[in-house]
Amino acid sequence: MTQRPSSSLPAIETRELQKVYRGRAVVDGLTLTVQPGEVFGFLGPNGAGKSTTVKMLLGLVHPSGGEVRVLGGHPSDPAVRSRLGFLPEQFRFQTWMTAEEFLSFHGRLAGLRADELRARIPQVLETVGLGGRGAESLGGYSKGMLQRAGLAGAILARPQLVFLDEPTSALDPIGRVEVREIIEGLRAQGVAVFLNSHLLSEVEQVCDRVAFVKAGRVLRQGSMRELMGDVLPVGVRVDRLTPPLLEALARIGEVRHTDTQNADHADIELWVQRREDVPALANAVHAHGARLYALTPRRPDLETMFLELIEDTPEATSPRQEAAHV
């Protein structure tokens, strides 16, 4: 049971994972796959069921339904958990301990030998930027230092999969860069990282693949390129927007948003598929006798994706939620 999984086995695999609290489905048919050694971003608005999902993947919360496999086994198996690292969103630890005692306790729980611990603890303290401060009591640590100590605990026992739940929430900008470097270091060692964060720029910079969740379901998952490569957001500003023009634009790309509030001009947001569609938009404007003030292709980013996805699927999940009550 304790053998290392072969590299082809996903680090995380869930099928129709579900958690119902008092008749309300917090996680509602969540299906996702995380490959070994990849950094996976888990995104969603507040209350989307992200933390509950992480807790189910760690065996802290028992699923109401569906399947979950972590490192080829079930998280309720201690042998599986001995290969996991976890930084909780609420990084609260025994404040009467020193950082070294905290790491020693967790290392022993994880099954590290005493001689390994002696070598490993100063190493991880150095990695998270707490070198030389291990003998201080956690009660005297600042929030940022506590989060760093928690991160040290998460990577202490050489896990194959690390869950980081909002790992930079208490860190300053320097700390955030350091955490990104730690995550990249883990990836270089072949460790899979499950990053739960709503700092989109952070996720964008470090993640290989992301999943968007809302109301306990995965709306979309894939690599950054897969998710964003096929879409090019374009902003168009014209003096006036007539219905025929709007129809013509909609034939070229997907009209996401129109703004006709301003008397002087109208703004249109479109998603087009190809670069060649951009001059086609200009032609359409001219052909309908409108005057073109701006034509702005934008770089697709996670924030656009996030907002579009979350805004586009407002009630999609409510029938399912109702079904889950039965």
Binding site: G59, R81, F86, F93, H106, L109, A110, G150
Partner: peptide, 14 residues
């Protein structure tokens, strides 16, 4: 209640 338990239970301890 104070959140200490989460990181302990995530370890290979039943």
């Amino acid at each position: 209640e104070n959140g200490v338990m989460q990181s302990v239970i995530a370890r290979p301890v039943t």
